[in-house]
């Protein structure tokens, strides 16, 4: 086995002094180590006080999520040698949770948010039998709609660098919202969709900025950002109207009409208040000042728009 030399730059946290600091560990180790094995090596051979959380070592228990080279992931799943850049591998705790010590973060706030969305099945008596002898029937195609989402191991890698949380620390979080989607899709669930959506709307789906970082982080390939779009679709179709649902409807309507969104009127339609009207007036003023001709204020349908509209209709129906 080949040995390689590099620096493990680890962000440590000392709760006694409430101090975060970077520490470099020079190592010469086998090139086959996972990041977790590297941490275990350091703890064993160099500094027994180095603290991290891990258990299964095989990407199942969800304990060892951390930020490795600026991206969240599981220490036990990632090969250390793939992450060495200019002789250094950078390891730090998840960013949106408070450190307890070194790489261990306090997961409690994220679990509290998970509890808030009621992450359990409320059996629908029409589907789930009331005795233990018979099973409830779920067809493969029904299960396929949330199969992927059931792979979540609650590792919080997605949560650990979610951008929405940087704007609002009360934001529910990606895996919590994926859970909402998972139960809405479950044919055995008896809770009203409206109720589940309400739970997902409170510091939830509308605060997501669609940055894709949750998807990039997830060791199981779960795309919470896409689940959030699905939840928004369901909210638009079942819930109360709001700025976001008005925007989504207008957006699609104008793309269908012209191929492009009508940015002149979008703020007014979405906001649906005086401020929106003001935004429209200001835009028109700006256009005029800049000498933009009036027929260029909004989008015009391109040649062959009828064929385009037919195309969209067919995609909706047949794809």
């Amino acid at each position: 086995m080949k040995k390689i030399k590099y620096t493990a730059r680890i962000k440590r946290y000392n709760p006694e002094e409430d101090k975060s600091y970077w520490q470099d560990f020079e190592v010469e180790v086998e090139d086959s180590l996972t990041v977790l094995e590297l941490l275990m090596y350091i703890k064993d051979k160099i500094d027994p006080t180095l603290t991290f959380r891990a258990f299964c070592r095989s990407a199942i228990c969800g304990s060892c999520a951390m930020i490795i080279n600026n991206r969240a992931g599981l220490a036990c799943k990632i090969q250390a040698k793939d992450k060495i850049k200019n002789g250094v591998i950078k390891i730090e705790p998840l960013k949106t949770l408070k450190p307890v010590r070194d790489l261990v973060v306090d997961q409690e706030p994220a679990f509290d948010k998970l509890k808030k969305i009621k992450p359990y099945l409320e059996p629908d008596p029409k589907v789930v039998p009331d005795n233990l002898k018979s099973e409830s029937l779920v067809l493969p195609e029904e299960f396929a709609r949330y199969d992927k989402q059931t792979d979540c191991i609650l590792c919080m890698a997605c949560y650990g660098q979610c951008n929405a949380l940087k704007g609002d620390d009360q934001y529910l979080g990606p895996f919590q919202l994926t859970k909402v989607f998972r139960f809405i899709m479950d044919t055995r669930d008896g809770m009203d969709v409206e109720e589940r959506i309400k739970l997902a709307e409170d510091h939830g789906i509308w605060e997501c900025v669609q940055c894709q970082m949750c998807f990039a982080a997830c060791p199981k390939g779960i795309s919470s950002c896409d689940d959030i779009l699905e939840l928004r679709r369901i909210a638009k179709d079942t819930g109360e109207e709001n700025i976001a649902t008005r925007r989504a409807k207008f957006w699609f309507a104008t793309v269908f009409e012209t191929g492009q969104i009508d940015k002149l009127n979008l703020p007014a339609v979405a906001l649906n208040n005086e401020k929106g009207e003001k935004a429209r007036e200001n835009l028109i003023k700006e256009f005029k000042q800049r000498g933009i001709p009036e027929d260029e204020f909004g989008p015009k349908p391109f040649d062959g728009i009828d064929k385009f509209r037919n195309f969209i209709k067919k995609i909706e129906k047949e794809l």
Partner: peptide
């Protein structure tokens, strides 16, 4: 990232 809220297939 908005038309998905109408229909992802589109």
């Amino acid at each position: 990232g908005v038309i998905d809220e109408t229909n992802k297939k589109i």
